[in-house]
Amino acid sequence: MPEITVRANGHARRVAVDTRSTLLDVLREQLGDTSPKKGCDHGQCGACTVLLSGRRVLSCLTLAVSCDDAEVTTAAGVSHAVQQAFVDHDAFQCGYCTPGQICSAVGMLDEFADGWPSHVTPDLTAAPELTDDEMAERMSGNLCRCGAYANIVPALRQAAGGPG
């Protein structure tokens, strides 16, 4: 089995991985970080979202063996205003989608800061505005079966520095 170095939440760990193992399974089963969740294992829910070299990605579709030396941040390693905002706005219930929402939100806010447009950006050539519609669209890759969306959007607004 190939050995890789995973830099998860600032700690470098050397692990032997099955080439078939996803980053999600290696984090959860071998490195003991169960903050990324497995909701579907097929890229269809967002529960496994982590930040890979700062970008939000799905760890269930990422082969661990391709992550040698990569920087991985999971919700357990995030410290960001969005977390308190989620608590304040009760932007979750069961909490199972939440770590993925948190990582996704951090990535999303960075993408926004970089001026990336979204599907609902009215004018692609202008800098987007962080409206509720924009946030909802950008967070739509994170399903929440408890239906906390109506609280997630205000939480994001608060985390982004707007009126909560």
């Binding site: 970008r55 799905l58 990422t62 996704s104 990535g107 599907h119």
Partner: peptide, 19 residues
């Protein structure tokens, strides 16, 4: 080529598009 940007942005999700 706005048609291309729009097509891409309508696909999948933010995380998937990053990959």
């Amino acid at each position: 080529y706005p048609v291309l940007a729009q097509a891409l942005l309508s696909g999948a999700s933010g995380q998937l598009r990053n990959m």
